[in-house]
Design a protein around this nucleic acid. Structure first.
Lengths: 215, 215
DNA sequence: CATCAACTGTAACAACTGTCACTGAACTAC
DNA sequence: GTAGTTCAGTGACAGTTGTTACAGTTGATG
């Protein structure tokens, strides 16, 4: 069991040095998360850094009125950059993190995250790389909201979904509308238009993506 | 002259330890920037970390068609987080940085930024704090674009401007429209509405802000 | 099979934003 | 002062998105 776990960590985080792997195994908690469970809520204190071992997480923003929009997805081998950015003093989360699929996460206590930065070069690099990657993804999301009309944002959203979970997108129109902070009717309308161009086929509860490259 | 410079750095970056100050003075370049000058362009290679000693910089995003929108302002004592995030390999800038006022910047060569992280605790903390602060500001900007109508975004924009440069906002309607990725006529219309509520007074080339707290 | 709930399709309408066209006011340079 | 330029104000109109209202479809359950 423990050997399996170690193999799995090595597989998802091949860049970590041996000593770091040892510390992770010794000091952190592995947790299984059900689909739909919330891992982090806005306003909640962050006490651990989250590493994703298996499954799929979505990171999104929610405002006072319950509106939300998707920031990005985290795949196995990724970490939640924001949870690494909190220093010793307790910081509150600015974001929501929810499991899209049943997932396995590693929880590293905050004080270790800090310590490891100077202790392990591979950890340091991982943290920097994570920051940067997430910042870039956030900028892309920002671009799509700022510069693009909803039809283009929808295509951008579908493409990203294909990347993380294949050509069969198992979502209702309502779910998509929520993640884009729009409304169901509008999304239905736009999806219908996309279907007419043969880029996708609509079904109940899932969308089949043929080719979105032209958009 | 050099003593003046050191005093100035100490004033803007009081948290830096002595040894770090020494290295900054010895190894980095001080540069004077004229109002309107571009310090970093999208696609350009980043070779230095930028610390702001005096003046005011704006950090914004620009798309292929020349549309832009404001991400945030940098004030003296701040640093460009993105320019710190680049590791040894040459990374291209994802953003534009331009001087809003005549400014003094410190350019720290990339390899030192990296080195100092492990060498100086105060530098390390500064970098982490900068990342975090910028990420939060970016999230706020994102919120305002995603959740708010243009009238609210305009108020948010004006408020931020008051924070960095006082109650007299020296901008034309066209400049505001550009930074919000909107159009001049629309901004004029909304500003006029705001003026009618006595929150602001409009003049040629500047706006006088009385009270925006209600919005 | 009957019923119910969730999901999807659509039409009509309203609100917001962007665009076009034009006017006038303020400042600049000669 | 005059001409030219930049800036601001305004009305009309078009396109996009959100809202309301309702109908039809699918799938689950008893």
């Amino acid at each position: 069991m423990d050997t399996n776990l170690k193999d799995n960590i090595v597989k998802q985080f091949p860049q970590f040095e041996q000593a770091l792997l040892g510390e992770i195994l010794a000091q952190s908690t592995i947790k299984h998360i059900e689909e739909g469970d919330e891992i982090l809520r806005t306003g909640q204190y962050i006490r651990s850094t989250i590493l994703l071992l298996g499954g799929l997480l979505k990171v999104y923003r929610e405002d006072d009125e319950g509106n939300e929009f998707l920031m990005y997805y985290l795949e196995p081998g990724n970490a939640c950059a924001l949870s690494m950015m909190c220093t010793a003093r307790d910081e509150k989360s600015q974001i929501m993190v929810k499991a899209v699929l049943p997932s396995e996460i590693i929880l590293v206590p905050q004080h270790l995250t800090e310590l490891w930065l100077s202790k392990f070069k591979s950890w340091h690099n991982f943290v920097i790389a994570s920051y940067r990657q997430r910042f870039e993804e956030l900028l892309q999301t920002l671009d799509s909201i700022a510069f693009k009309a909803l039809d283009e944002r929808l295509v951008f959203y579908l493409k990203r979904h294909v990347q993380v979970s294949g050509e069969e997108i198992r979502l209702s129109h309502q779910q998509i509308a929520t993640e884009l902070n729009s409304s169901r009717e509008v999304i239905s309308r736009l999806l219908k238009k996309l279907e007419q161009t043969k880029a996708i086929t609509l079904h109940r509860n899932y969308i089949e993506v043929h080719d979105l490259e032209l958009f």
